[in-house]
Design a protein around this nucleic acid. Structure first.
Length: 310
DNA sequence: AAGACGAAAGTGGTTGA
DNA sequence: TCAACAACTTTCGTCTT
């Protein structure tokens, strides 16, 4: 995190758009997504009046779920306190102390390890801190509810992260999570479903357009193509082509078509790889898109243009 | 020769009896 | 708890550029 980026490393443009919620900086000229330089230097809150300010201002270390006990742990006191107590209370005191240690060491040790792992995975995926925070919260709740029992810590961490990503509309695919955490895809999916159900976390199905910026960037597509593909997705949602389908497949197909229309052809293979779906899926979605929306004309138009240029 | 296309069979997960 | 089912994948042969 050596210095703050002001220029796009790809085209040198200074016309950058910082989407803070998603932790993405996007070059308006070439569409490159620069994710790695994400430090939010701003306050995430504003002071509307003095009362609100007093409520929101923090002193000392921020209270954070990323710290396992939110920085507020308590302990049953040690030696200095008990010499005043009589025999009975002394015994009680020792019992309490023992219990407290047992409970807290088990949970706290787990949390310490888990949150370290969570940090590792989240920084590997370059997730914004808001997501990391949310994931920590989810994990903490899961531990408190005893949902980790019988599951590996890693898989619960991955599941919590996946859920947090979805809630913040910064979806990562299960494949990406799996690669970063070393937990199997289906295992992540399973624990994800389990903990969201048990904790009553409501998550809307992710929107295909949330994937566009990232995928388009890996494919080096122009911002125009990106915009076009988002439009296509919106159209598709209007005609109900999207329900029940995997969002990544739709995003991939929309990008593929948008690239064609913009004369920036990518192969199905290339698009399939970055989106983590197969060519077949792209073909199916692609066919549906062409059938339902009148896109053939637009593709032919660019073909003619290309022919005329040559 | 590479990419696009489509058929067929297999997989993992959801749903409803 | 099991079977039907939809979406998606894998694999493979054929057509197009």
């Amino acid at each position: 995190m050596s210095k703050y980026v002001k220029k796009c490393p790809e085209c040198g443009s200074v016309n950058l758009f910082w989407n803070k919620d998603k932790g993405e900086i996007i070059c308006r000229d070439c569409g490159l997504v620069l994710e790695e330089k994400m430090v939010d230097f701003d306050q995430e809150w504003r002071e509307m009046d003095s009362e609100a300010a007093a409520r929101k201002r923090r002193t000392g270390a921020p209270m954070s779920y990323t710290h396992f006990d939110q920085g507020l742990g308590t302990e049953v006191g040690t030696k200095a306190d008990f010499y005043k107590l009589g025999g009975k209370s002394k015994n009680k005191f020792f019992r309490l102390r023992k219990w407290q240690q047992r409970i807290s060491t088990a949970i706290e040790r787990n949390l310490k390890l888990a949150l370290a792992e969570l940090k590792r995975v989240s920084s590997y995926l370059k997730l914004p801190s808001s997501v990391e925070e949310e994931a920590s919260r989810i994990y903490t709740l899961a531990v408190q509810k005893g949902l980790v029992r019988g599951r590996s810590m890693e898989s619960v961490v991955a599941g919590a992260l996946y859920a947090a990503c979805r809630r913040h509309d910064v979806p990562r695919t299960l494949d990406e999570l799996s690669e970063a955490s070393g937990v199997e895809k289906k295992e992540i999916g399973r624990t994800y479903r389990f903990i969201t159900r048990e904790l009553g976390i409501k998550i809307l199905p992710s929107n295909p357009s949330d994937y566009i910026a990232r995928f388009a960037s890996s494919l080096r597509l122009s911002p125009e193509a990106q915009t076009k593909s988002v439009e296509i997705i919106e159209e598709a949602q209007r005609v109900e082509l999207t329900s029940g389908r995997g969002p990544t497949g739709i995003a991939a197909a929309a990008l593929y078509v948008a690239a064609l229309i913009n004369g920036e052809k990518r192969t199905q293979r290339e698009v399939a790889d970055v989106a983590g779906v197969t060519e077949v899926t792209i073909r199916n979605r692609y066919k549906e898109l062409l059938d339902e929306l009148g896109l053939e004309k637009e593709i032919k138009k660019t073909k003619k243009k290309a022919a005329a240029a040559a």
